[in-house]
């Protein structure tokens, strides 16, 4: 009994429930006529799509800035990269690479300003991040209306002003990573090798970074600011670095999301982009002040698994689509759980 209790304490009760729930969904799948390979394939595609967005949260959590609800700032940088690259008429791998470079530039600039701001509001980062994110999305919505874009694939035809709400990247770089070295088995199973490889590669880079001097300094700032100050670490600088990294990773993350999804969503699209990523990393066991790459992997897999499996199983069994409601309850319940706990991390 105590053994189970300790396990529950280590792993976190909500995470156990979520894992069991997902397990039950997968076990039930063959009996209710849900195509398991297709579901697994869907889950993999989604992990590839969303993985880097989840990864983007790690630096800021590590530096003690909390959950980056302002990830939409990074998303905006990514959108700028994507639209400018399309405006320039670049297609294929080149278009994608240029989009990444441009978005990283914007991400660095936005991240720097955002980091400067967060340094002046230590202790209240999360709420401010949320609203800074929201208001920048709205400023950008105005910008999408008035920026002088010309490419006919992106602007409204007759009678409209500004860019379209959704822009297809078909013919530019749709599935450029998903289809790179893709493993296709039958009609229903597809493994998006490219996207997953990029996710693993970026995770490796982050892992290496956090074992180098700057990375360990960032962790020190997050876990023990007093000690960090005493050992001569420039706290504000480390925090800015982490915010910039987070924003730039967010920019990369949205580009990878878009190449797989096939569309760029402007205007209010990025408004809530941060929330699923935050829910995922918390489901993976991260706390408000500590996150590991294991948290990222487990979290992305569990969260995307639930998102894929819930609608198909519920539709097959109950003939109702409650997936939206379940998604809302699971993800926000997880964030709530993390906020109300003393910052302790599950293994």
């Amino acid at each position: 009994m105590t053994h189970i209790k300790r396990l529950a304490a280590d792993f976190g009760l909500p995470r156990i429930i979520i894992t069991l729930y997902l397990l039950a969904l997968f076990l039930a799948a063959p009996f209710v006529g849900v195509d398991l390979p297709a579901s697994i394939s869907d889950t993999m595609i989604r992990i590839g799509m969303n993985g880097i967005m989840v990864l983007a949260l790690v630096p800021m959590i590590q530096s003690g800035c909390g959950l980056n609800f302002g990830l939409s700032l990074g998303v905006i940088a990514g959108l700028l990269g994507a639209t400018i690259s399309i405006e320039a008429g670049l297609i294929g791998a080149w278009g994608f690479i240029v989009a990444i470079f441009i978005s990283q530039g914007f991400g660095a600039v936005f991240g720097y300003g955002y980091g400067k701001l967060l340094n002046r509001v230590k202790g209240g980062e999360m709420m401010i991040a949320t609203y800074v994110g929201f208001s920048s999305v709205m400023i950008m919505s105005i910008a999408w209306l008035i920026l002088p874009f010309k490419s006919p694939t992106m602007i409204w035809g007759y009678g409209g002003t500004g860019l379209r709400t959704t822009i297809s990247v078909e013919g530019f770089w749709r599935h450029i990573l998903d289809d790179f070295l893709v493993i296709q088995i039958g009609d229903n199973f597809k493994f998006p090798t490219g996207a997953v490889l990029v996710f693993i590669l970026m995770s490796l880079l982050i892992w290496v970074f956090f074992h180098l001097k700057t990375g360990t300094a960032i962790t020190a700032v997050g876990s023990n600011p007093t000690y960090a100050r005493a050992s001569g670490i420039n706290i504000d600088r480390m925090r800015i670095v982490s915010v910039m990294m987070s924003t730039m990773l967010g920019a990369l993350g949205i580009l990878i999301f878009e190449q797989s999804f096939g569309f760029i969503q402007l205007y209010e699209g990025p408004l809530y982009m941060a929330f699923p990523a935050v829910a995922a990393i918390l489901i993976g066991g991260a706390g408000v002040n500590k996150a590991t790459l294991t948290n990222v992997f487990i979290g992305a897999a569990l969260y995307q698994g639930i998102l894929t499996m819930t609608p198909s199983i519920f539709n097959a069994v109950l003939k109702v689509d409650m997936s939206d409601v379940i998604r809302i309850i699971v993800s926000n319940g997880m964030i709530l759980y993390a906020l109300t706990r003393k910052s302790k991390v599950a293994k």
Partner: peptide, 12 residues
Amino acid sequence: TPPDAKSLPSKP
């Protein structure tokens, strides 16, 4: 609906 429409984060 696009194939992955469900993965779109709409409202949190």
